[in-house]
């Protein structure tokens, strides 16, 4: 039984021209609008994926032969009760973990076939993470936090700084760049985390309860920002949430129960 819901959205007619056309091909492109995805291209393809954990000697199957295809440019919400396997599925898609069996292909990479080092490179290039608890480094300023993913590129210090500042401007934090996380509100911290997630222009934004720790107003602001990233900047977004208001923003909502899609 499928409960996928799809909503139509208008795309932004005022698309920007990429500001830096001279960026080397192997480096992340500067954060930009107009990254129009190929219509209908599958970016996440899960086929009969199973994930089993062992509690002592007892196996615990969290994902049970799950198959799923997500198109580039989609904004999908993943809902389900606790223990249904949402986070496990998100971990697999984000390359944090490997499936026990089945095939998980994300951005053309077979997650199960990659080594730890290859997975790290895959995440650095293709995944932008947005966590429930923001997961900012408390000892680094907003700008330094946002620069972190760029340290894994060959960009110069000046270029890293420029891009971090651009990403913070996109998330509306141009006046908070030198603030430490403790000097920011929860909503502002999550905006820094979003800036960090987009600064290296990843293929997919993976959000784990992005509004879980926020009040309604801040949560709505964050959801607005995610919508903008999806509509204006054509980011593929996959969001795990318990919040029906958050799921409302997604173009597709999938429900997971006992390791299977409903």
């Amino acid at each position: 039984m499928s409960t996928e819901t799809t909503k139509e959205r208008e795309s932004d007619p005022n698309r920007d021209v990429p500001p830096d056309a001279a960026v080397a091909a192997d480096e992340p492109k500067p954060y930009r609008k107009n990254a129009s995805p190929e219509k209908g291209k599958t970016i996440i393809d899960m086929s009969a994926v199973t994930k089993t954990f062992f509690r002592g000697k007892e196996p615990l199957t969290v994902l049970d032969g799950l198959s799923l295809a997500i198109e580039e440019g989609a904004f999908e919400a993943l809902m389900g009760p606790s223990g249904s396997g949402k986070s496990t599925l998100l971990n697999l898609i984000a390359g944090l973990d490997r499936p026990t069996s089945g095939k998980a292909t994300v951005a053309g990479h077979d997650i199960g076939a990659m080594s730890d080092g290859e997975l790290a490179k895959f995440r650095a290039r293709h995944i932008g993470f947005i966590f429930q608890s923001y997961n900012l480094m408390p000892v680094l300023t907003a700008r330094e936090n946002v620069e972190l993913p760029l340290l894994l590129t060959k960009l110069s210090g000046a270029e890293r700084k420029k891009r971090a500042e651009t990403a913070l401007r996109v998330t509306g934090l141009e006046n908070r760049m030198d603030h430490y996380p403790r000097q920011l509100s929860g909503g502002q911290e999550q905006r820094v985390a979003i800036a960090r997630a987009i600064v290296h222009d990843p293929t997919i934004l993976v959000c784990d309860e992005p509004t879980g720790d926020l009040d309604r107003k801040s949560a709505d602001d964050i959801l607005e920002l995610l919508t903008k990233l999806n509509v204006d900047f054509k980011k593929t977004i996959l969001m795990v949430t318990h919040d029906p208001a958050a799921a409302e923003r997604a173009t597709v909502t999938r429900h997971l129960n006992k390791g299977k899609l409903e």
Partner: peptide, 9 residues
């Protein structure tokens, strides 16, 4: 988080 961002072991 650093590992998730792509920093190697």
């Amino acid at each position: 988080t650093l590992r998730a961002l792509g920093f190697s072991k």
